[in-house]
Structures are given as C-alpha cells and as structure tokens.
Design a protein around this nucleic acid. Sequence first.
DNA 1: ATCCTGTAGGGAAAAGCCCGGG
DNA 2: GCCCGGGCTTTTCCCTACAGGA
Length: 466
Amino acid sequence: MSRKQEFICGLSHKVTIAVLPRLNIEELFFELNRRKVEKEKSIKDRLVSILRDVMLEEYRQWDRRSQVSSPGETTIFRQNHETATMQENVPINYTETLLPKTISPDASQHSSGPDNVLKKENDTSNEMLMHTNLKELHVDADQAHLTVPQQDQLCIMPSPSSPTLPPCDAPLIQSNNTADSRIKEEDFAMTTEGEVGKPCHDEYNIDTSKFSTQKLNTLNSMNTSYSETPLESNTPVEEAPSARCYLPPDNGDVPLENGCHMFEDDQIKQTSQASNHDATEDYTDDRETADSGLEHSGEESNEQSSEEKPFAHSFSKNIYRRRHKEEMPFMCGECGYRASSKHRLVGHMRTHTGEKPFKCNQCNYKTSFKGNLVQHIKRHTDAEPYRCELCDYQAYQKFLIDRHVMCHSGVKPYKCEECDYKTAQKGNLTRHKRQHTGERPYSCQRCDYKAGDRSNLAKHIKNKHH
DNA sequence: ATCCTGTAGGGAAAAGCCCGGG
DNA sequence: GCCCGGGCTTTTCCCTACAGGA
C-alpha cells in the first residue's frame, strides 16, 4: 500500500489502515456502522479485513473522482452521512475518531437527549467518548494542491435535534496548516450520523447518543517537568522538555500534542471491577509467590504468605492485571498505540515529538526513555554480569546472553518459506529473503554495483574504490 | 571480488512489576 | 483498603557491523 493510501484511508487524521488491528472490536464495529457496511458476527481479524477493504474501496473511488475532476486541484470535503452515499462522497479523511465505550446488547435502550450534549455526566460509566482532530486534516505532501471549500461544504451542520453534535461554526483547517497543533473548541465538529441510535447489529448495538465530545479544556501551561535523579556516578544530564503535555482537567478525554488523546473508559472499568471476583479465583502467579518467599524459602513460606492475605494478594494482583492488560484507555491519536496509564502515553508521545530528555554525560547519547539510558550507561562500565557457561562470552544485557546461548543450542526458529534456510535471528531471515526477491537496496555511488546488504556494499567500496 | 551467513552490539520502544501517596 | 501515578527493570524488536567461508 502506498504512503498516500495509508494516510487517506485513515479512521481519523493520521490513523492509518495499519492501525486497524489495534482498534477495539467496538471501534471496528462503530467504524463499519459509520460507513454503512453490513456487519456480521465475526472475530476481530475478520472485522479488520472488512474495514480495510471498505477503506481501500473508498480510496479507489475517491481516486477515480480526483482523476475525473480537474487535475491539479483537489477539494477537501467531508462525507455527509445524512444525504450522501459512499459513491457520491468519498472522504479524503475523517476528522474524528469515535470510540464507543462499550457495546451493550441493550444499548439502544439508552436514552438520548439534549442533556447529553457536551455535558460531563456525573456518572460517566456509560459515557462513550470521542475525540476530534479537525485541524489536523493531513494530506500527503505529494498530493495535489488543496482548495479549501466553503464552510457549508466542509462541515455537516448538525441537526438541532441531534443529541451529540456541537455546532460546527468553523471551517475545517487546511490540511497543511499544522503550525498550531493544539485543539481548539472551534475545531470540533461532529458529523451527524445517519444511523444514530440505530442498532447496527442484532447483538452489537452502538448507541451514538451516548457519545459526548471530549472536554476541551487543555492545560497548556502545565509542564511535564522531569525530576530525574542523577544516575550514580554517570549523572545523566536532563534536558528541559521541549514539548508540553496536555493533562486532563478532570475525567474527560485529554488531547495531547500531536493529536494524542487519552480516553477515560469508565464503562470498561466498571466491567472489569465487576469481574474481579471471578478473576481472583482463577489467578495464580508463580513468580509472585516465589518473591513472597524470599525470606523464607520453600513452599511453606509461600503457602503461609497466601494464607495471611489470601484475598488481598490475589485481588491486588488482579487489579494490576486489569490495569495493565485489560484496560488500555489511553490512546495515541498518531498511531493508535494504546497505553494502560497516562505516563506511559506521555512517554510514548516522545517517540513522536522526538523529545530526548535523558542524556549520557560520558557521550552524546540521548534517549526518550530513562530505562534506555540506564542500559546505555552499562556500556561505559566494565561490568558484564551475564556469562555463558559454555564459553567465555560475557554480556551486559540478559537478552544478549540469551541470544548467545541460543547459538550454542542450535535452535533456529526462523525458517524461510521458499527454501530450507533456517536461522536463529529474525534479522538474518529478513536479509536472506532478499535473495529470493532480488532486492538489492544498497547501490554504489561510483559504479553500478548493488548489494543486498550494507556491509557488502562497504566491502565493495573498500576494495574497488579505495 | 563477491555473495552469503553467523554472531554480536546496541538503540528504540514497550511491557512487566512494584511502590508510595492520596 | 483501594486506586492511581509514576519509577525501575526487563523484554522485544530492529538495525547494524564484523568476520569468515564458499
């Protein structure tokens, strides 16, 4: 798929088809419903496949229309779900990502009304959240010149009776205008869904009346200052963060910079809490029981520990599992990455901003993650705590010693599908496959030589041109 | 000289796990 | 006691360099 397609077929401004597998099944259903595609009971992979096909078809239709229309000029418009069909309007981009909190069989029974408009409900357990990023309508740079149409072409003016639609009083911002990445209230505009409140499936009903717009109050002045203590003798220097992070004023969704949003999923929370009891009965964790026996080795101590706090132990652990494995309420609007907590998402956002606040004071190394700096600093020490029992190899990372031991064992889990080649490292298989594809991405600047491996090109240059 | 492979170093990013405070 | 934020550690993925045999 071309980069162009990747960007155009997104669920929202920058979310691409590649993100589809990371969406919740509820989100997939919702997006399908939004596109008026008949859904079926299906596993998530199937839904992803369906939605991907739909999005590609939309793009193809749009592409054909673009070619028919005057070349060199493309108009941004939004799909009017009320009046237009997919054949008539093919969206370049969607400006909002709607995240239903849950799919309830009786969701259609939920009331809807004006009270829900832009209202932070006291009980948010049933609230479905959405976020918008109208201002970040991105179109690939190599696309045709964009003409911003009139406001009525851009925005779907919400019906007065629509319970979820704030007024659209601002035109969409031209896609390449990204100077100010902050989301303003005026930038919000929800499309009126033709299927609002209408069951989309016998069992999976999405009541869009339960959606509310995210809270728009951003605390721009808040700074994500880092207060890292120096790492022992190496004392990594900490840079002042250049990017600000938008933190939630309350329980609302949180727009972060660069289209990053956080979602508060109270419904999921409630569901998880409701399931806590059952989960605790099934939960066992060998490692934790082992840890509890540090002072008293053996099964006895473990059993004793469990007896002392039979419920607290499993409940606490269960909370951990719920937090870190089941709930992922914080989503990055850039790539669809989901995090279990805000600080994880903040860290993730550094991968998009390029912020690298952690610096090694012994070299120029910078990183976005403190843990990586800790790993890096080990390089500057002589300590290599991991040693191979079969040879003299030593490593400062456990992963390195594990991989090394794998070489001794002769285990080669990566197999080529086209020949009998096997290897212990995935990268080797990737490199090997270039033989079958004939790919030689590394070209010599001084002759016609091309290599499938960078090191071979380096050898060639060294031998031929030096 | 070139191709191919094995091995290993290291960075980036995310996940796992834990703890303290509200 | 519970929940949340956040810190530290570990794991995973990927790219790359280097050496050596064919």
